[in-house]
Amino acid sequence: MAELPQAVRGFSTTFFTMFRKVNTEQYPEDKDKYPPKPAFHGRHQLNRHPDGLEKCVGCELCAWACPADAIYVEGADNEEGERHSPGERYGVVYQINYLRCILCGLCIEACPTRALTMTNEYELADNSREKLIYEKDDLLAPLMPGMAEAPHAMVAGTTAKDYYEGKVTGATPAQLEEVAAREAAKAAAQAASDAAALEQVADVDALGVAVAGAKSKYAANAKEEALAARATDAGKGGEQ
């Protein structure tokens, strides 16, 4: 019976382990308790100046630095009345393919305006390749208080240099007004087109077109739309 003390000693380890602190992280329930380190490289973000203009100048240095060829940028000139960033140029197309991106951070090191940074967001899994190409809309930083949605004019009397030196601290009333006027015009145009569409439907009814006929027409429209959507999906990213 010399084994008994040894067995007791062995099982006592098992027994006392039951009272030790549990090591497991309850991921989906308590994920806020275990945030990634602040330096963690997660999803990218395209930052804005304090007045809401974009910081990206469309220089494509991020795309050049990318070892996996995951970034696609197209720059364009800022037009008067359609200004997205201070200075000459802005990024009109900005796509990151998260199925190529290895989250290494070379792009954010390459960015000369600090327009591109990385967040701590990591829940990116999805069920198709198309959905994992993030467009500019998905990457742009949300509007903070005091910001006005680009495009709008620069703060009166400033240059691009003032923006980079941090002299602009928020949107001026003139900028806010410009954006509000644009939004109102857009809403009015939308309402007008909705009314026109309703009128068209009314016309069709007035002509006494059979419901079945109208239905097949709408079905054909829907089919065309679906085909067009597929075509744009397939051409996403353009020729590189």
């Binding site: 991921y27 990634p36 199925l99 991106c101 994992l132």
Partner: peptide
């Protein structure tokens, strides 16, 4: 499809 190189365990669980 799960991006990441490599994805952290939380990403896999997600």
């Amino acid at each position: 499809y799960l991006p990441g190189c490599p994805p952290r365990p939380e990403m896999l669980m997600d």
